[in-house]
Nucleic acid binder design. Structure first.
Length: 330
DNA sequence: AAGAAATTCAACCGCAAACGA
DNA sequence: TTCGTTTGCGGTTGAATTTCT
């Protein structure tokens, strides 16, 4: 017997998500938090498989996601990390907490790979690029190993002395876990930007997608009441995002079986205690220990001891840029 | 202006790791 | 330890959009 499908394929909807589906999903996660994706379709009535729900959340609806053009700085980091880590997009994304692995992967495939190819092509005309290329691949695993060791050191360090870690936005390579679930239901709806955009798009497209009359749309209210503490640089925040649903939308939430009933108003409450930085819009939480959350073995003890004596947290960037391959492209 | 080609990116698929009983 | 289930990841696809001819 083979592996069972992640979901019942019969009656499962595929393709682009509608704004209505997005709101249902966001609202559900607002109430229950992410996780237990298996239960999401049945609890929300969404005709989507659990995977699709998770993907939609992590790649699009999750708070703190920055979309649109990548900055030159982000480009550099991606190119650099790709050279070091290979196509480990999730690992790369952990250094760019506002970007999703999917986004980075897409950006790499569509923009950066070409860009690098072009630049490498130019190099070939003038230099012994073939030899440097072979040197590059020869040493790639070595650097990868080096990076892995470095990351393990860091993670161990963080686990045992979190305060030492620099979470400031000025440290662009702080390994803030982009997709780490954060406890507490209020955390997830804190992305006023995302939800605002979501609702705006929905209203923009509403005549088509929601079959709303113009007057209905005009009657639609959408407000985002962020607490003044947001934007004041406070590490904690509290805000309320509310969107009065237009006529006809109520039915989406009043389907039997849904254990959340927003009635006419979807309210997203953002409580304090969460690690939401309003200025940057992403979550600061304990660094991911995904690669190192294991008992201390001799090796890890060694790594940790070594890390204690290590000079700087941002040496990764230093090491990498020192290598030159990717840095030289700019 | 119209069709073709190229590009973009959201979403899907399958595999493997992680998790829990 | 084993086995079934869930989650995460990376590769790939294809519809929509943009650019070119």
């Amino acid at each position: 017997m083979g592996r069972p499908p992640c979901c019942d394929k019969i009656g499962v909807k595929k393709g682009p998500w509608t704004p209505e589906e997005d709101i249902i999903l966001v609202s559900y996660i607002q109430h229950h938090g992410p996780g237990n994706w298996r239960a999401v379709p049945s609890n929300t009535g969404l005709l989507r498989c659990s995977k699709s729900c998770r993907l939609r959340w992590t790649n699009y609806l999750r708070p703190g996601i920055k979309r649109g053009n990548f900055t030159e700085h982000e480009e550099k980091i991606i190119i650099h990390l790709q050279a070091l880590l290979g196509n480990r997009w999730a690992a790369i994304a952990s250094y760019l907490p506002q970007r999703t692995d999917n986004d980075i992967k897409n950006y790499w495939n569509t923009h950066l790979r070409k860009k690098l190819k072009k630049l490498q092509g130019n190099d070939e005309n003038s230099t012994t690029s073939s030899s440097s290329q072979s040197n590059f691949s020869k040493g790639q695993w070595e650097r990868r190993l080096q990076t892995d060791i470095h990351m393990a050191k860091k993670a161990l360090c963080d686990a045992l002395s979190l305060d030492k870690f620099d979470h400031s936005p000025s440290n662009p390579i702080s390994p803030i876990p982009a997709q780490q679930p954060v406890q507490g239901p209020g955390t997830y709806a804190s992305s006023a930007e995302n939800i605002s955009r979501l609702l705006q798009n929905w209203m923009k497209n509403s005549p088509k997608s929601s079959q709303l009359s113009r007057s209905d749309s005009e009657n639609t209210q959408c407000s985002f009441n962020n607490n003044p503490s947001i934007g004041s640089g406070s590490s904690s925040s509290e805000g309320t995002i509310s969107a009065t649903t237009p006529k006809g939308f109520d039915s989406l939430f009043s389907e039997s079986g849904n254990d959340f009933t927003p009635e006419n108003t979807v309210i997203f409450q953002v409580e304090s205690k969460l690690n939401f930085n309003a200025e940057n819009g992403f979550l600061f939480s304990k660094p991911s220990l995904e690669e190192s959350q294991v008992p201390l073995t001799l090796l890890e003890k060694w790594l940790f001891d070594d890390a204690i004596n290590a000079p700087a947290q941002d040496e990764l960037m230093g090491i990498g840029m020192g290598l030159g391959e990717s840095a030289n492209f700019f």
